[in-house]
């Protein structure tokens, strides 16, 4: 992150002791409220040794939770990625009226409580739901089954890729695409060899956030899952079940898997953000030259 170069301007810099206090205050606050919970989970996970840790993770219910979580992410992340790219492309490259409105609609799931997101699908497909008679006729289970988990996760994670790409693509404009089309490239060709390379890092960033949320979602999934051990419990729900049984070592062990996922997400995010900033700066330089 670039930092305002205040070194040449001693007049607007805080005096040394004050700067020290400000940094200390920041680190204390972040330490107590943000970092300590992460450390807590990792330490508690290993508090009873590696054997207990490994046993908690290879136990059949935990393994089935891992597979279920991976399965849900494997369906939702690609779907929302395609949707996100298409939507960002449609909004940013073909400016139309009402794009602000569309962008707001895309963000809607962020402002809805995850519990309500889950509830929506129970109301649609649950026992008194609108589609229930039809689903019963065809013996399809949505709520308390895999499809319900997928739908709730789709809803909750749908904004991530799009909201990452819309500002990026808007800042890049469409001159490069126009040039490619003028030179005779087809729409697909233009997309694959011009648009996609330009948005690569923003896309990776959006996908990794989408994936983190898909694997870590709790509220929405908890409402539609039914909490059947070994069948419909995803990793976060398995953590909840273990914790509520006072099986703290196992709960923390399984939670530590999710915590590691969060750390990987942050690393990729930091790397991608740096690249996005570079690309945006390059795009702005290009535009200034024209």
């Amino acid at each position: 992150m670039p930092i305002a170069d205040t070194s040449r301007l001693p007049s607007i810099r805080e005096p040394r002791p004050i700067r020290f206090l400000l940094v200390a205050g920041t680190l204390l606050y972040l330490g107590a409220f943000i970092f300590l919970p992460l450390v807590q989970v990792l330490v508690m996970a290993l508090s009873k040794g590696w054997k207990v840790y490994a046993a908690a993770i290879v136990e059949p219910d935990a393994l089935s939770a891992i597979w279920l979580t991976l399965g849900v992410a494997a369906v939702t992340v690609p779907l929302n990625t395609v949707f996100g790219v298409a939507l960002a492309w449609a909004i940013a490259k073909n400016p139309c009226r009402g794009r602000r409105l569309i962008a707001t609609l895309v963000d809607l799931p962020f402002s809805v409580s995850p519990v309500i997101a889950g509830l929506l699908f129970v109301l649609l497909f649950g026992r008194q739901g609108w589609f229930q008679p039809w689903l019963e006729q065809h013996d399809i289970h949505v709520i308390f089954a895999f499809p319900g988990l997928v739908l709730a996760t789709l809803f909750v994670t749908s904004p991530f890729v799009a909201r990452e790409l819309i500002p990026l693509m808007e800042s890049q404009g469409h001159e490069e695409e126009d040039a490619a089309r003028l030179l005779g490239a087809s729409g697909w060709r233009t997309f694959w060899s011009v648009t996609l390379p330009n948005i690569k890092w923003g896309l990776i960033y959006g996908v990794i956030l989408c994936n983190a949320r898909a694997m870590g979602e709790f509220g929405a999934v908890s409402v539609v899952s039914g909490h059947i051990r070994g069948r419909t419990n995803t990793l976060p729900l398995h953590v909840e079940a273990l914790f509520n049984e006072y099986n703290f070592a196992a709960a923390n062990a399984v939670a530590s898997l999710l915590a590691c996922l969060a750390l990987v997400t942050l690393v990729v995010r930091a790397a991608a953000e740096w690249r996005v900033r570079q690309q945006r700066a390059a795009a702005e330089r290009n535009r200034d030259e024209h």
Partner: peptide, 11 residues
């Protein structure tokens, strides 16, 4: 943003 809420909750 990145840490699943259930993990934050138990921590």
């Amino acid at each position: 943003f990145a840490l699943p809420t259930a993990v934050a909750g138990i921590a």
